[in-house]
């Protein structure tokens, strides 16, 4: 048996998991499943790509860092891209979601996010066309690390980056005032308001955090696979499945759910056939809904 699928699965799982954090937080705090989240991912990636291009135009060609396929411009661009994606999410919330939320019908917000997702995605196709692009066309040599597994320097860097981001998000959610306010609003918005938590601020923090992580996840897809306008939409079902598998509102759950789905997808590619990959998250989703709808770390809704 070839264990290469473990590495592939962990990488796919990292991208799904980072995206699923945003989905699960939006669901827990703003109380709707955001169908536009995948498109935040794609927009973040294209924003990063555009900033990389702009830096390249200003300072000329930059040598890649050590063994990696990217140089410092990508890191700077990623930070800018995260901020831009956050702004996009805030703007969309201001013109659309917050107004509909105020009317108190959460399912209308879901529908609006579906319309917004279609519009955002097609706008990307209009600006950048649907042709795939890449951050770098350089080919990396995969290093053997034993057990028949090979891994490239980029892949190691991204796995480490995921671990750092997940740890940081977890600390943010459990150790800081912002994170505790977010948890309070997710558990009981009315009570949170009564004890003086600024709900509007919590909402902003949720969008910024979710969108920034989506941008990172999208950029990871861009570095390891390719950049397409549909890249985020294709990740939507795995992200929802991961969020529900992990339990809505749970950050570690979303990441663990993402890893499980990533590993299952990679195993399916190896043992069933690559064309059935997209069905894996649906199968897992249905199994969770039948067996344990609150997910691994979920809590019963009050």
């Amino acid at each position: 048996m070839n264990l290469q699928f473990v590495v592939d699965g962990l990488l796919t799982g990292s991208m799904i998991g980072l995206g699923a954090i945003g989905v699960t937080l939006t669901y827990a705090i703003l109380r709707f499943s955001n169908f536009a989240h995948g498109d935040f991912m794609a927009w973040g990636t294209y924003a990063t790509l555009a900033v990389v291009g702009a830096i390249g135009a200003m300072v000329g060609k930059v040598a890649p860092l050590g063994p990696f396929s990217f140089g410092w411009p990508l890191l700077v661009a990623l930070a800018v891209g995260c901020a831009l994606t956050g702004l996009l999410a805030l703007a969309l919330d201001a013109v659309l979601f917050s107004r509909l939320r105020a009317r108190g019908q959460s399912i209308i917000v879901v529908m609006a996010s579906f319309g917004a997702s279609m519009a955002l995605r097609s706008l990307l196709e209009f600006i950048f066309t649907s042709r795939p692009t890449y951050f770098s066309r350089a080919i990396q040599i995969a290093m053997p690390v034993g057990f028949g597994i090979r891994i490239t320097p980029d892949q190691i860097a991204l796995l480490v980056l995921t671990a750092v981001l997940v740890a940081a998000t977890h600390l943010l959610m459990t150790r800081t005032q912002t994170g505790r306010s977010m948890q309070a609003v997710s558990q009981n918005p009315a009570l949170a308001r009564v004890v003086g938590i600024d709900v509007a601020r919590v909402v902003r923090a949720t969008w910024m955090l979710g969108a920034a992580l989506a941008c990172v996840a999208g950029t990871m897809v861009g570095i390891l696979v390719q950049i397409r306008p549909l890249m985020g939409f294709d990740m939507l079902l795995p992200m929802f499945a991961a969020a529900i598998l992990g339990g809505i509102g749970s950050v570690p759950g979303a990441v663990l759910g993402g890893l499980i789905i990533g590993l299952a997808e990679a195993a399916a590619v190896q043992f069933v056939g690559a064309e059935w990959r997209a069905a894996v998250s649906f199968v897992i989703l249905m199994a969770v809904l039948f067996v344990r709808p609150i997910g691994l770390f979920g809590v019963k809704e009050r």
Partner: peptide
């Protein structure tokens, strides 16, 4: 899905369309 929150139906039906196309 209908014993669960309404969003779960949305997500599941979305999955149905993905799988049917697959």
């Amino acid at each position: 899905t209908l014993r669960l929150r309404s969003d779960y139906l949305a997500i599941t039906t979305f999955g149905v369309s993905v799988v049917v196309q697959l």
